[in-house]
């Protein structure tokens, strides 16, 4: 099947620092990809390139048939099909939980308020916080906020969901509720690209696990193989760290 995400020789540097020297990655529709690796390895930059939040310097990115071209302004078209969940949630603090989930559909997709609200409520039920709909983000816990962020992204009816370390900013006791919501989402068959160090989650839902270091993919294999046969000493050492529960260096 033709890939829904294609990245070819994608290059990105921040000033003098070359983060992605030339990344190649294809994701098939419905595939769930987990990306892990040490901090500064370019994982977050890589997925932020997919929906153009970080403009790439060179190379080709095609998402669901649309070539991401910042000069031609196709980024908003790509973003409408790609939902994103951030490490810091980034909910809109001046809007209620429900409004957070309807502002995109109403403003960008010009859907009616009534329909957008009905769908948003259904999504809030799916992430198990319908009773918080009228509250403001500041009144919620971190785990609840992140689940709202997932609902907000889904409200745009995306074909792809990107997660950038969705549990890293959470207190430990709230990680599970967010991961549960992500596992439930995985069951719907949507394409997912997830940057995370939650290896239990990766083992449970991923079709492929990628290990990135210095902007390059060192390993790309199904979970069973990833854990059984680390391709590189660095992957092995990363897995040892994670298993000891310390997280990677």
């Amino acid at each position: 099947m033709a890939p829904i995400i294609t990245m070819e020789r994608v290059r990105k540097s921040y000033g003098p620092i070359l983060v992605l020297p030339g990344l190649d990655l294809n994701v098939a529709p419905g595939q769930r990809v987990v990306i892990c690796g040490p901090s500064g390895s370019g994982k977050s930059t890589a997925i932020a390139c997919i929906n153009g939040l970080v403009p790439h310097d060179a190379g080709r990115i095609v998402v669901d048939g649309i070539a991401l071209d910042h000069a031609r302004g196709t980024a908003p078209d790509v973003r409408r099909m790609v939902g994103m969940v951030f490490q810091q949630f980034n909910l809109f603090p001046h809007l209620t939980v429900l409004e957070n989930c309807t502002v995109g559909p109403i403003t960008v997709q010009r859907r009616s308020r009534r329909e957008a609200e009905a769908e948003a409520m259904a999504l809030l039920e799916r992430v198990r916080i319908p009773d918080q709909a009228a509250k403001y983000p500041a009144q919620l816990s971190g785990g609840q906020q992140q689940r709202v962020a997932i609902a907000r992204a889904l409200a745009m009816r995306p074909r792809i969901m990107l997660f950038d370390e969705p549990t890293s900013a959470l207190d430990p006791e709230m990680v599970t509720e967010v991961l549960d919501a992500m596992v439930a989402l995985a069951d719907t068959g949507i394409t997912m690209v997830v940057v995370t160090h939650e290896m239990g989650f990766a083992r449970q839902v991923a079709h492929r696990i990628l290990y990135m270091d210095r902007g390059a993919i060192l390993q790309d294999s199904p979970p069973a193989e990833f854990f059984a046969n680390p391709a590189d000493a660095r992957v092995q050492s990363f897995l040892d760290h994670v298993r000891r529960g310390e997280g990677p260096a």
Partner: peptide, 10 residues
């Protein structure tokens, strides 16, 4: 993050 979130909604 507010700009990123708005952008990510298209």
């Amino acid at each position: 993050g507010q700009y990123l979130a708005a952008d990510s909604l298209g």
